[in-house]
Amino acid sequence: MSLSRLQTATDILEARTRVYEAQAYKAHRGMALGSEERSSPLTLGASAVDHCLEGGLACGGLHELRSPLARDIGAATGFALGLAARAMAADRGGRGIVWVTDPATRVDGGGLFPAGLGQYGLDPSCLTMVEPGDLQGAMWAADEAAGCTGLAALIFQIKGNPARFDMTATRRLMLRARQSGVLALTLRQSGEEEASAAATRWRVNTEMSGADDDLERGVGAMRLSLTLERNRAGRTGQWLLAWNPKDRSFDHAAPNPHARANPPAHSLDRLPVSADRRNPSGKMGQVLDHRQDFGRAS
């Protein structure tokens, strides 16, 4: 190859590199501009939690909420809606909430009840419910929604730990949410801990409500026992929170002195009811059923 041709090739290469750099810079700038307007973190309202999160939840990002038991889904849904309601109220240019459900969650037969949304100050018509026929469709819908700047929040409800919703899928969701500034929440019903790209992972347990002064033996407002199991940006912790429907924020709550004072006569082990969890870890002190007949097993 002659020197002049080599020179030309190098020139072309250089020019190309310059184009790529310019594109990358543009993309970066566009991203920064897009997220700058919406980058202020989302506070929960409870001071200790916000302090631990260094200001609040990163709005453009993926956060995972899991409820260990199927019946904890009420509490986890409440927490997710509380966060989404705060994201809506913060008015970051988002105009609605998209709720994507994996069809597997419908097996338990529960669905969102619009009359219950009043306590979060949410108008039922601001929710768009997306119910694809399979998990793949649901993941696609969640991806699309996470990349949509016109949204305040995306709630993606799945059941258990499906193998398909893996690290790659969560990372994609995380990246898209970071670009668009959408608060993306995965609501994992009866799910195990699992490695994911989410910025934070919360375990939500229900907690006995506080004694209501007006009503003897009455049922008070929602209380959650929140465990921040994983936080990419900082510390973890555990708190007891209550939703305050008047201010639409989370408050710290004192534990109910009567809670679990007398445990039920026939208490049951809280077995997680996850759909298809992989390699469930045994709990400490749990009695396992060992096989006796190793020799005869073929």
């Binding site: 889904i73 009420g74 849904t77 409440g78 809606l81 037969g109 529960g110 669905g111 969102l112 009840f113 619009p114 009359a115 219950g116 949304l117 009043g118 306590q119 108008d123 039922p124 209501d212 007006d214 009503l215 009455g218 049922v219 008070g220 407002a221 929602m222 429907p245 008047k246």
Partner: peptide, 23 residues
């Protein structure tokens, strides 16, 4: 229609659940 009178008590007590079973 969003907040029918029975949804919220004057005392701020929630009377409607968040999850309703189909059956």
């Amino acid at each position: 229609l969003a907040l029918p009178p029975e949804t919220e008590h004057p005392g701020g007590i929630i009377t409607r659940p968040l999850i309703l079973f189909d059956r």
